[in-house]
């Protein structure tokens, strides 16, 4: 994949020079901080603190945050015309797309790592279930990667960042709500299939309880691979217009 590392580096750099990326990180850190303190307060003296409180919140919040982190990725390159330079460089289309995806995932990982500090603080004041915490974090890390990959597809579809973010949010919302629909459907088999397809179905009853199932890892990895594949084809299609 020629070009992947250079594109990755530039992408990371562009998150650190953009105000709105800081704002997203700031929003996530504020909200998770409040959730952490609230949970600690509720738990005090009654139960151990819940290590998956932040991952569970993020499993909902990524519906909105992931598209905000990815809307720029390809839409801006198209609008500014830099995509033409990228596509005429010796970098491969795959290298460009994967580099960009890894850039956004790395930025998300960094935000996640900062919230993990809360768990470490807990070690000093309570006996947190660290295995549970690590499982929940691994889960949301993969879950977030899948959301970012979905977001990138929509960034490749349009030059308009707002449209890209809106469409990605809508699709992620459907993938998220699908799980709730599964709970009210009367046909058990249909409900099960529906649940297997949704993001929540592979998180809320496994990773969030500290359970690590290979099938859930495969599900998120599969979403990422499929979405990257679609994005590569979409980027390639610019050559045929």
């Amino acid at each position: 994949m020629p070009g992947v590392f250079t594109v990755f580096q530039r992408e990371i750099g562009s998150y650190f020079t953009s105000l709105y990326a800081y704002l997203i990180a700031f929003a996530i850190l504020i909200i998770t901080g409040i959730l952490f303190i609230t949970d600690l307060d509720n738990a005090a003296g009654q139960r151990p603190p819940d290590p998956s409180v932040i991952p569970t919140f993020l499993s909902f919040a990524m519906i909105f945050f992931a598209p905000l982190l990815t809307m720029r990725l390809l839409a801006e390159e198209k609008r500014e015309g830099t995509l033409e330079l990228l596509l005429t460089s010796p970098a491969s289309d795959t290298g460009i797309v994967v580099g960009k995806f890894l850039g956004s995932w790395a930025y998300f990982t960094l935000i996640l790592a900062i919230t993990f500090i809360y768990q470490i603080i807990l070690i000093g004041i309570a006996q947190p279930d660290l295995v549970h915490a690590i499982s929940a974090y691994l889960g949301i890390w993969l879950y977030g990667g899948a959301c970012l990959a979905v977001g990138m597809v929509f960034s490749a579809i349009t030059e308009n960042q707002i449209v890209a973010a809106f469409l990605a949010s809508a699709i992620l919302f459907l993938l998220w709500i699908g799980d709730r629909v599964g709970q009210v459907v009367t046909n058990i088999d249909f409900a099960r299939v529906l649940r297997e397809l949704t993001l929540q179905g592979h998180f809320s009853t496994s990773f969030a309880y500290g359970l690590l199932h290979a099938e859930d890892v495969v599900y998120f990895a599969g979403i990422i691979v499929v979405m990257l594949f679609i994005t590569i084809r979409l980027v390639e299609s610019n050559r045929w217009r």
Partner: peptide, 30 residues
Amino acid sequence: RGQVGYLPERVPVYPDMTVHGYVAFWAKLR
């Protein structure tokens, strides 16, 4: 593609990069 330097009709830029960072990026990519 590795043998070519190309200036498209409308100069494509990354507005938030520095002049040096931008040029070095393309050098590295190529």
